Amino acid sequence: MTNLTQHPERTADRVEHTLAAIWRGGDDIALEAVPVPPLGPGDVLVRVRLATICGSDRHTVSGRRVQPCPSVLGHETVGEIVAFGTEGAGGAGGAGKVRAVDGRELRIGLRVIWSVTLPCGACDRCLAGITAKCRSLRKAGHEAWDSDWRLSGGYAQHVLLPRGMPIAIVGDALTDALAAPAACATATVMAVAERAPRLAGKRVVVVGAGMLGLTAVAAAASAGASSVTAVDPAAERRELARQFGATDVRQTMPDTGPYDVLLEFSGSSAALQEGLRTLDVQGVAVLAGAVLPDAPVAVGPESVVRRHLSIVGVHNYEPRHLTAALDFLEETRDRFPWHELVAEPVPLEEIGSLLISSPGTKPRYAITAY
């Protein structure tokens, strides 16, 4: 558990400038010295310790995914709080006014992760608890450089977290390399597991054994699933899946089954089509990988009715899933080889090459900003 009195003597120093990797389209990614905007009430400034490279950012750079440009990418980040806004916590005159999602006070020097999504908190969806689909949603690492949130991405020395951003405190037991992916991959899997039925005693098949799929294999195994089958065409990922609790691994979707729960992270319509056929009565399919267009999937209504099937989707996650992700990693840090999933970090200056092409087979590559 992180000590909330960590660095009690430190106060918020004004950071005037920072370095940010600005993406200006295609493979044009360059480090630039930029001013840090003044912090408003409730804002938090974080010094980036480590950021991991999510596949969605590679999709953005390659043109497969559309987002504002120019911008600072990066949304799997762990950092250290260095400053608060005029009515923030941790500095003189403002202690206790900014809190983590679990209610604890934020202070200078604490290690934190934060949500991909910044909701308004006031629209009908936010009030209904569906903040991931806020009607005026903003996203870390997805905002335009000419917007009022230009320092939103983790591929920089500092990130500005606006008032209302869900923030979670990272405990001392977790390394930066474990904590950073929790802000996207691990938290998303926590949301997926929540949408699935109780996994204890269930036959689970996980399609796609990348960072999210491997995490889902571990989550299902930890929840007491009776069997966990991992499906991925890459042999090295199938081997990793065994290390994360898979009882069976397959190169393609098996036609044997049946399964009670299908967790889909590949984004492959063909794999999903085959997977739906293997679901048993009252089977549940949770889709999270289909974030880019692919071929339609044929679903026979009669089959859905007669087998009592449920098909649900998950995109983004809720603030509670941040703390669930960190708790899950702490509980399983000695059971599964999480350290195998993230490569040794390289300097921020190398972010361009990491975004343009993956240097190897690790599920995650990382940068350090200092």
Rank of each mutant, 00 (worst) to 15 (best):
T11I: 12
V291L: 12
V66P: 05
T188Q: 11
T117F: 07
E344C: 03
G63P: 13
I29L: 08
A295Y: 05
G79Y: 09
R306T: 12
L263H: 11
I81L: 14
P41G: 04
D102Q: 13
V204L: 01
L178E: 08
A209F: 01
C134M: 11
V116S: 09
G275M: 03
P345L: 11
V284L: 01
V98I: 13
G85C: 05
E264D: 09
E331C: 14
T278L: 02
P359L: 08
L322C: 15
G85I: 05
R10P: 00
E105Y: 12
L151I: 06
D27R: 15
E143R: 09
G224T: 02
D327C: 14
L322N: 10
T117I: 12
G25D: 14
V116Q: 03
A187R: 02
A234K: 13
P35Y: 12
T332E: 13
H339F: 10
A241N: 12
G88K: 04
M211S: 10
L341C: 00
G210S: 04
G93R: 11
L199K: 03
L174F: 06
T77A: 06
V217E: 00
E344P: 01
V112S: 03
S269M: 09
K133W: 05
A369E: 02
I356L: 15
R49C: 06
G93E: 07
K202M: 07
R163L: 08
W338T: 07
W114H: 14
P337I: 12
T332Y: 09
D57L: 06
C69S: 14
G26T: 01
S269N: 15
T175V: 08
Q273L: 01
A196L: 04
G300Q: 12
A185Y: 04
V192R: 09
G275Y: 08
L341P: 08
D248C: 15
A216D: 00
V304N: 00
T18G: 03
A92H: 14
A12R: 04
V217P: 04
H59A: 15
W149V: 02
Y155P: 01
L106V: 10
I81G: 02
G201I: 10
I351T: 06
H142I: 08
F328N: 07
G171K: 01
C69F: 03
T175D: 12
P38K: 08
W145V: 04
W149P: 03
G245L: 02
A92D: 15
L137H: 14
G90R: 01
A196F: 10
V72D: 00
T5K: 11
T323G: 06
A290N: 01
S310I: 01
A295G: 02
M253I: 08
H321V: 04
P293A: 14
R307L: 03
H17L: 05
A241F: 06
G313D: 13
T229F: 00
R364D: 10
D57G: 06
C126D: 08
C126N: 05
Q157P: 08
L214E: 01
A225M: 05
V98P: 06
L355H: 03
S310L: 10
L240A: 05
A180R: 00
E349A: 15
G208M: 07
L110T: 06
P8H: 07
V101T: 15
T175Q: 05
L322F: 05
G171D: 10
L73D: 05
A191W: 02
A173T: 13
S303I: 03
